[in-house]
Design a binder for these strands. Sequence first.
DNA 1: CGTTGATCCTGGGCGC
DNA 2: TGCGCCCAGGATCAAC
Length: 297
Amino acid sequence: MPELPEVETIRRGLVRKITGRLIVDVSFGSRDAIRRIINMPPKKFLRKLKRRKITGLRRRGKFIIFELESHFLVIHLGMTGQLTLRDPRKNDEPFVRHPATGLQRTRQHPPDRHTHVAFFLENGNSLLYRDTRQFGRMFLVRSADYKDFFGKLGLEPFTPQYRLCAFAERLKKRRLPIKALLLDQSFVAGVGNIYADEALFEAGIHPARLACSLLPDEQERLFKALSLVLRRGIRYGGTSFRDYVNAQGETGQNQEDLRVYGREGQPCFRCGGPVTKIMLRQRGTHFCSACQRPHPY
DNA sequence: CGTTGATCCTGGGCGC
DNA sequence: TGCGCCCAGGATCAAC
């Protein structure tokens, strides 16, 4: 589910509301789900979090990172993870799936069978972690281990380290389809299936091209396309295809602005030809077969 | 070493 | 209505 723009949108929606707050309690859902999601016994997790103050909120790739006093709580939302705030003074609304779009409409909701962790804050609000498919993970990382934890993660877009020369150098070493490389978090952090397809379309590059075969101007177009589509995703509050909601429980708007993802058979915005969908490494892959040629010559 | 495909889950949608 | 199958914003890991 959530790629860099979605995680960043959640972060921005939470940062003012939880920074400086104390975690007074943590409650858990079903045992089996908790064992998968948290990297330690729940009692230990609770002991380490109780009475801790949240001093800040960061993001690295698709990870959202809660700064505590001696630790970081690192959360990866997997495919269907949701982090939402619940204010007991406001009314709850049930999850409602829109019959036509399939999108969920909700503001805040009470915990249900997919709500696996609730963090209770001293101001009465709670932060709910809900995850239908249970692919998300939470880690408590000691401050000293922080760098190590993210050691293998790749270039971070929108930072000074995200530079064309580093990008091109990494590209040249890899002999696999460029789409597959874009999904590899040790290359560029934060890119997932939607934004990989969107960036390749913007750059006019066929998803099955071998990464090492990209010509210099293609490398540069892809480098720029990635930051373009990610920035656009953030500006529109993320892409809601199914489960993604922001910290307030609202869907994003970026699905209205996608060029190829989810548009199979519909006209390419550039040439008018039909958008093609193929399976590449078990992932749905959308592109325009006229604008994104399999061979550059 | 690098690359690949199976696997972990639940649920929605489709064909029969 | 129901069943079986395929698909879904992801990442890990055994096997080549």
